[in-house]
Structures are given as structure tokens and as C-alpha cells.
Write a protein that binds this DNA or RNA. Sequence first.
DNA 1: CTTTGGATCGTCT
DNA 2: GACGATCCAAAGG
Length: 208
Amino acid sequence: MAAATSGRPRPRPLPRRFYLPDAREVAPQLLNKVLVKGRRRARIVEVEAYVGGGIDPGSHAFGGLTRRNSTMFGPPGHLYVYFTYGMHWCANVVCEPAGTASAVLLRAVEPLDGLEEMRSLRPRARSDLDLCSGPAKLCQAFSITGADDGSDLVAGVVAGALRIVDDGTPPPDRPTATTRIGLSAGADLPWRWLVPGSAHVSRRAVSR
DNA sequence: CTTTGGATCGTCT
DNA sequence: GACGATCCAAAGG
């Protein structure tokens, strides 16, 4: 081996099989993985699971296949991007085999690199804690729009493409679990997970 | 610090 | 025609 420092594995993209399980299984495993696009890198600190099979009234796919949610019904490892409130984009990672609509919403990430670019893309952010602390904020910071809906996070070597990589940081042993944010239906289901103690989440977990 | 209301338009009924 | 898997600024304590 050439390097004297051999402790840290080289970051590698998550394989397709990572996204094959139920979104409730994939979601907490995505914590501490790293979202990468060009020079921009950020650690995933908050996610929500949206489950297929007609058991999740909070999911966009609950009512079946529509034009908007069709990516959710496709193969795993692709990006489902939707438009909401007339102005915001939000990004999910599709899970489970094609035909089952489940996904993990990326709700907050901790910026690691490329912060200058993120700041210019998010001029309203008052501090670096505001750069990516919300599902629409992180899409602004990573230039994710509807044009990215259906894009593949795994296959192909495309320069500057969005990727999720493992840099050797394991998921939290005991992730914080709470109910999901902003829902009218399915608001009681505890399918939101946070990195405990992270200052970069969208909302702090309810203290006790 | 917390709460409130406005912005703004694609999607689905 | 109603409603968002949100964000932000302003107002209130």
C-alpha cells in the first residue's frame, strides 16, 4: 500500500442493492452517508421514509400511480423530485423493486465541502446552519430541480452527477426517531430519523 | 425566543 | 377549485 494513512476507506457510491429494502429500513442507514455533486459534499443528517403498498397515507403514491409520482414506482436507486407550494423542489431516493412505490425523503444535510457555491445558491441563508437544513433548502444548495426527477444515482460515470457515497462513517447506533414533518395524513407514523445531536437538522427533535 | 401569514403554481378531483 | 412531504420575514412575548 502506498499511503501511510490507511485507516479511512475510499468513498464509494452506494450500490443498487442498498436501495432494495423497505424505505423504513433504508432511511436510517442513509444517515451519515454523503451527498456529492461536483465539489459540493454534505453529510445526510435527517431523512423520512414513505412506504409503498397502500399502507402509508402520507405518501404521494398512496392513491396509486399518477403522472407526478411515477418515478416512485420505478427501480430503486433513482431520484424522485417533486414540486410543492408553487416554488420548492424536494428530493427522494427510490427504494424497493420497480412496481412498489417507496422512497426516502432527504430532509437535511450537513455541508462539508463546496460551501461557497452553496452560499451563492442560497442567498437567503443567514448562516451555514441554514444552507441545507430542510428538504427544499438542500435542493437549492445542490441545484436539484424537476429536471433531475428519475435520474440514476448509481449507474454510469457522469462527471458532476449527483451521488450518495459511503465515506466510512457508520450510521448512528441509536438514531433519533420522530413523526414526519408537515403531513396532514399519516402524521402519527414515526418514520423520521435524525443523527442525534446534529445542529444541521430542519427541526430539533422534541426534547424530553 | 415563538407564532403567524404570505408567497406561488403544479397536480389531482 | 383546493391543497400542499416549505421557506421566510415580520410581528409578538
